[in-house]
């Protein structure tokens, strides 16, 4: 077989290159070219990671909920929305963990503690736990259509935590500071502001790039889940006969016994045809 490009194409290459360039620029400005802060000193340099990651986390969960709504709405119901929900929720959880980790480190340096149970931190931890539960729910197997329906409802309910988390610093007293940018008169130095905005672009590109890749993985997993093993077995045969062995351990041919019998009964007509061709 030819070179396996995986889930990459022109779009992901552009997004990936853009991510690399903007992340590098953010690091250059954030770590070297911007001044330290009057109060926080060098610790201010975490502002070029943490808020952007938190925003990506919110966007991931928000996108998951929007896609879930689109799935629930009868006129737009399509498994594509379910796949987008799965992809964006998973990437959202990754950025949620990044938010918690960078926030904890920043907190240790500036506040003096790794963690405190104020409303913002508590709700972010809750958000992370809830969407980890959502991802677990998606792994329970069973009928894909009913899984899509259940997880869509769960996502739409759980996303209510996002606005509560965002407004926590203005609704209640918290140790966490309020918004830097979304307020009447932001007080932030010019180069710090521009670098912070650049970090949002960089993280946005990384986020989009990851969601596109993850979406395609979801498409492929859906296919394998629903079409059984016919595809994989056909490929294994083709690989063995072509003697292409980039991974000797894995390309060991599966015995044609029960797997083939099951695949011919389970696979859709097109997949069955493929299986026969390679046989």
């Amino acid at each position: 077989m030819t070179v396996h490009k995986g889930t990459a194409n022109q779009l992901t290459r552009v997004l990936g290159a853009g991510s690399l360039v903007t992340v590098a620029l953010t690091a250059l400005f954030g770590l070297w070219l911007t001044p330290p802060d009057a109060v926080q000193g060098q610790l201010v340099r975490l502002i070029y990671v943490h808020p952007a990651a938190a925003t990506a986390c919110y966007v991931g969960f928000g996108l998951c909920a929007l896609a879930s709504l689109a799935y629930l709405w009868p006129r737009t119901r399509s498994r594509r929305w379910d796949r987008l929900a799965a992809a964006s929720a998973e990437v959202g959880v990754v950025f949620c963990v990044i938010t918690l980790a960078t926030g904890s480190i920043w907190g240790r340096g500036s506040w003096g503690v790794w963690w405190t149970w104020d409303a913002r931190l508590t709700l972010t931890a809750l958000l992370c736990a809830v969407f980890l539960g959502y991802l677990a729910l998606r792994r329970t197997g069973g009928n894909p259509e009913s899984r899509a329906l259940t997880s869509a409802i769960v996502a739409v309910v759980c996303v209510a935590l996002v606005p509560i988390d965002h407004y926590a610093t203005s609704w209640w007293t918290t140790l966490h500071q309020g918004d830097t940018l979304m307020r009447a008169n932001p007080l932030i130095h010019g180069s710090q502001l521009y670098t912070m905005l650049l970090s949002f672009v960089a993280v946005g590109l990384v986020f989009s790039w990851l969601v596109v890749h993850r979406y395609r993985v979801e498409v492929l997993e859906d296919r394998f889940e629903e079409e059984g093993f016919a595809v994989a077995i056909a490929e294994r045969r083709a690989e063995a006969s072509a003697a292409v062995q980039d991974r000797p351990a894995e390309s060991a041919v599966v015995g044609p016994g029960p797997a083939v019998a099951a695949s011919s009964s389970s696979a859709g007509s097109e997949m069955g045809r493929d299986g026969e061709v390679s046989e």
Binding site: M1, H4, K5, G6, T7, A8, L210, H213, R214, Y215, R216, V217, V219, L220, E221, F224, V231, A232, A234, E235, R236, A238, D274, S278
Partner: peptide, 21 residues
Amino acid sequence: RTLRRGRVLVRSLPPGEKTWR
């Protein structure tokens, strides 16, 4: 992890099959 999952899945498709479209 994500890229590797994608590569493994694409490699398991039958020859000539378009991938994730």
